[in-house]
């Protein structure tokens, strides 16, 4: 459905995007993951025809965005990083404008009502967009992308600036949209793509670092497990006990949480279950364990492990 081949975007001597290629099949939800400034937005802007690539091509449903932009743009619903909202219009006026702009042929009233239902903006339908909160504006931005029922949806950081409840709602919404549409969404939050996407494309510094199903990317980080433990007692003794547990690779105190108890970052071999031995070892040493949780793998971990893997493959 989406085919990006060898896209390069240069600004002067700087490569914003350097030779990226990937495909997205119909009905897939693909997460576009990378730190800030990795080239996510640039790639999406090229894909939607807002920018032109220095070289390479982008095709939507087999139609080249550069040689046949109007035909290609018809198939795309795009939510840019900053939702393109006219603050002086009401939601109703705005969605009707988008409806006209996209030459939509569906039943106007019914179609717009359906969209409002899906993104839950029915109660602000007659309000001026400039008066809406950030969360509602983001939803109007998503509503705008859905007008005309495009086959491909492209969302650039759709959950940025929302509160946790809204983030969960928007994620669920995108998941449900994925049943009928092909979706690309960009984010720099790892759990977000893990929650929503079938496949993850990772880019860093303009280059493609990984392209794999979500489960594989998860595995890539699962060479080691990370825990945060809160343990009472003197750090030296605690560390001695921790390092004596079979499977723990690394342990270090992070901060003193309450008086007499420290938080420790623990890294263990993923193939060995360390939580039970850890508990008993601390028990035997009469060091109370007052908290233990697994730490979320973050984007840096993914990068480090992926880049390490790549290096190993090269060798």
């Amino acid at each position: 459905m989406i085919e990006i081949s060898n896209i390069v975007k240069k600004y002067g001597n700087l490569y914003a995007v350097n030779n990226i290629s990937f495909k997205v099949n119909e009905g897939e939800i693909v997460g576009f993951l990378g730190p800030n400034g990795a080239g996510k937005s640039t790639t999406m802007n090229i894909l939607t025809g807002y920018l032109s690539a220095t070289s390479g091509s982008a095709k939507i449903g087999g139609v080249d965005i550069l040689s046949n932009p109007i035909e290609a743009k018809r198939m795309i619903g795009f939510l840019p990083e900053q939702p393109p909202l006219y603050l002086d219009m009401t939601v109703k006026e705005y969605l009707n404008f988008v409806y006209d702009l996209k030459h939509c042929t569906l039943n106007r009233k019914k179609h717009l009502a359906e969209i409002c239902e899906v993104v839950k903006i029915g109660d602000v339908y007659n309000r001026i967009i400039g008066h809406l909160s950030k969360g509602y504006r983001q939803r109007v931005g998503i509503a705008q992308a859905l007008v005309g029922n495009p086959k491909v949806l492209i969302f650039d950081e759709p959950t940025v600036g929302l509160d946790p409840k809204q983030i969960i709602e928007i994620r669920n919404l995108i998941r449900s949209l994925g049943e009928k549409h092909t979706v690309i969404l960009s984010t720099h939050i790892l759990p977000e793509v893990q929650a929503v996407c079938d496949r993850i494309v990772v880019i860093n510094k303009g280059q493609l670092v990984a392209d794999a199903p979500t489960s594989d990317i998860g595995r890539a980080v699962k060479g080691t497990h990370k825990y945060t433990a809160k343990i009472c007692g003197d750090t030296k003794t605690v560390l001695k006990v921790l390092n004596g547990v079979d499977g723990i690779l690394r342990a270090e105190p992070v901060t003193e949480r309450e008086e007499g108890s420290y938080e420790y970052a623990i890294e263990s071999d993923a193939s060995i279950e360390v939580r039970k031995p850890l508990f008993y070892a601390l028990c035997d040493a009469r060091l109370p364990l007052i908290g233990l949780e697994s730490a979320q793998a973050n984007l840096e971990d993914v990068f480090i492990s992926i880049i390490d893997d790549n290096k190993k493959e090269e060798n």
């Binding site: 807002y50 035909e71 743009k73 840019p80 900053q82 393109p84 909202l85 006219y86 702009l101």
Partner: peptide, 14 residues
Amino acid sequence: KTRTEQILLTSPVS
């Protein structure tokens, strides 16, 4: 400035 041009330039309009 408000980036609303993005909706115009990514819509099927010349």
